[in-house]
Simulated scan of single mutants.
Amino acid sequence: MSTKQQPTSPGSEVDQRYAVYDERKRKRMISNRESARRSRMRKQQHLDVMVGQVSQLQNENNLLSQKIDNTNQLYLGVASENNVLRAQLAELTDRLRSLNSVLEIVSDVSGLVVDIPDIPDTLLEPWQLPCPIHPITASADMFQY
């Protein structure tokens, strides 16, 4: 005895189509949710990397600011010392001129010939100073980077 399959009724065919459509829709929703989850994960990882970079750049910026502050302090110290040296130079130049004036008067009054050297303009030509050359020393911490 053989059993024949009954032809499907039109109503059940529509139900199968809806079932297939619902299955596709369900799979698409699952796929979309998974894709959205991966996208959120990528976005979070990107955000974490960017936050790390911001932190690193802020640290580097702080270090550079400290180095700039240290360099400015060194510059102010050198500039201050330079101003003191310029004032001392001006004072010593005035003393030398006064002493040369006295020597000229003594030379004129006594009749003795005194060799009075000219005073160079040391601010314009510092390499022509009439004093011996002293080595310029620098410490290692003077040029911190």
Results as ranks from 00 to 15, higher is better:
residue 84 V to D: 05
residue 98 S to L: 06
residue 87 A to S: 15
residue 127 W to S: 14
residue 135 P to Q: 06
residue 126 P to Y: 01
residue 69 D to F: 02
residue 134 H to N: 13
residue 84 V to W: 01
residue 139 S to I: 03
residue 110 S to H: 07
residue 92 L to D: 07
residue 68 I to E: 08
residue 76 L to R: 05
residue 78 V to L: 09
residue 128 Q to S: 09
residue 52 G to V: 00
residue 82 N to G: 00
residue 92 L to Y: 09
residue 118 D to E: 14
residue 115 D to V: 03
residue 100 N to C: 13
residue 123 L to Y: 07
residue 70 N to E: 15
residue 59 N to L: 13
residue 53 Q to Y: 04
residue 40 R to P: 05
residue 100 N to W: 05
residue 87 A to D: 10
residue 110 S to A: 12
residue 51 V to N: 08
residue 68 I to M: 08
residue 49 V to S: 10
residue 101 S to T: 08
residue 121 D to R: 08
residue 81 E to D: 11
residue 45 Q to G: 03
residue 64 L to K: 02
residue 120 P to I: 02
residue 134 H to M: 14
residue 95 R to E: 13
residue 75 Y to M: 05
residue 141 D to M: 04
residue 128 Q to H: 05
residue 73 Q to K: 15
residue 121 D to H: 03
residue 111 G to I: 06
residue 63 L to E: 15
residue 49 V to E: 11
residue 109 V to E: 09
residue 96 L to A: 05
residue 108 D to R: 12
residue 132 P to K: 07
residue 48 D to T: 07
residue 77 G to Q: 09
residue 119 I to A: 07
residue 87 A to H: 13
residue 71 T to L: 12
residue 104 E to V: 08
residue 140 A to D: 07
residue 124 L to V: 06
residue 129 L to E: 00
residue 124 L to C: 02
residue 141 D to S: 07
residue 71 T to R: 06
residue 85 L to R: 07
residue 122 T to I: 12
residue 95 R to C: 05
residue 62 N to T: 15
residue 79 A to R: 13
residue 92 L to K: 07
residue 54 V to M: 15
residue 74 L to Q: 05
residue 103 L to A: 15
residue 49 V to F: 12
residue 134 H to I: 14
residue 75 Y to G: 00
residue 57 L to W: 09
residue 70 N to D: 15
residue 119 I to P: 07
residue 44 Q to P: 03
residue 67 K to P: 01
residue 69 D to Y: 05
residue 135 P to L: 00
residue 45 Q to V: 13
residue 95 R to Y: 09
residue 108 D to M: 11
residue 134 H to E: 12
residue 69 D to W: 01
residue 43 K to R: 10
residue 109 V to G: 01
residue 53 Q to L: 12
residue 63 L to S: 14
residue 109 V to R: 03
residue 115 D to C: 00
residue 129 L to S: 10
residue 51 V to K: 10
residue 97 R to G: 03
residue 117 P to R: 01
residue 122 T to R: 03
residue 100 N to H: 14
residue 59 N to W: 08
residue 114 V to R: 01
residue 101 S to G: 11
residue 113 V to M: 11
residue 90 A to E: 06
residue 133 I to M: 04
residue 140 A to G: 03
residue 68 I to V: 15
residue 125 E to W: 00
residue 92 L to V: 11
residue 93 T to V: 14
residue 67 K to I: 13
residue 71 T to N: 12
residue 109 V to M: 02
residue 106 V to S: 11
residue 105 I to Y: 06
residue 78 V to R: 07
